[in-house]
Design a protein around this nucleic acid. Structure first.
Lengths: 103, 103
DNA sequence: TAGCTTAATCGTATATCGACGATGAACGAT
DNA sequence: ATCGTTCATCGTCGATATACGATTAAGCTA
């Protein structure tokens, strides 16, 4: 029995952290939260990035499961997935709890 | 006055998340926490990575301020910086708090 | 001093990220 | 049908990340 930690075990959290590891994506999440209601490509107007780049970041957040995107006619409406955020919050709290109890 | 969010504002948290965004680094942190006391290159024996790679990950964690490394004779002793973890925990909690109050 | 251990760094190769212009696809309006 | 709007995707490019063998540096021991 090897006691090498199974790195796969840490992949979900690592993936989530990766999704949060870009200032633009944090700004997008914050914006979505502030709007309360879902907003769309209006994010593009507000971000200092091209439409393509914003779309790319939205895709990353969506693939990470942190936001949902629903097509509404010609536009797409993005919204924070609060359940997913709550789960991630629990995971990070569990991690930090362990780490803080060290030393 | 533009209402474009200042992305620089999000950089510190993004940087911290980046440091957490690799399974090996999460495993190292966990290991450091479990040991309670500081450990050294024994991490290398335990991780499924080369000594060079582990050293690289330790460097990333150290540069992110999440761990400290002190040289003790021929070895280096790494330890979780609980204060830094606590600060990061606060930051993420603040973020998640805002995000969860959405929709 | 010579040899061993430990760990950082170098050099290299590959993969992924991030940005953006250009293009395409879907839809609504005329 | 044609146009305009909205947004996703493609293709490309430079930068960064990751892994690892090889080397170096530092310290201990004999």
């Amino acid at each position: 029995m090897s006691n090498k930690p199974n790195l796969e075990k840490y992949e979900p959290l690592a993936e989530a952290c990766k999704a949060l590891s870009h200032p633009a994506r944090l700004a997008i999440l914050q914006r979505l939260a502030e709007q309360g209601t879902c907003i769309c490509g209006e994010i593009v107007d507000v971000m200092p990035l091209s439409q393509a780049s914003v779309s790319q970041h939205l895709k990353v957040l969506k693939q990470a499961g942190l936001i949902t995107g629903t097509i509404e006619g010609p536009r797409t409406c993005y919204c924070i997935d609060t359940k997913a955020i709550a789960r991630l919050r629990k995971s990070t709290e569990a991690l930090f709890g362990k780490l803080e109890s060290c030393c």
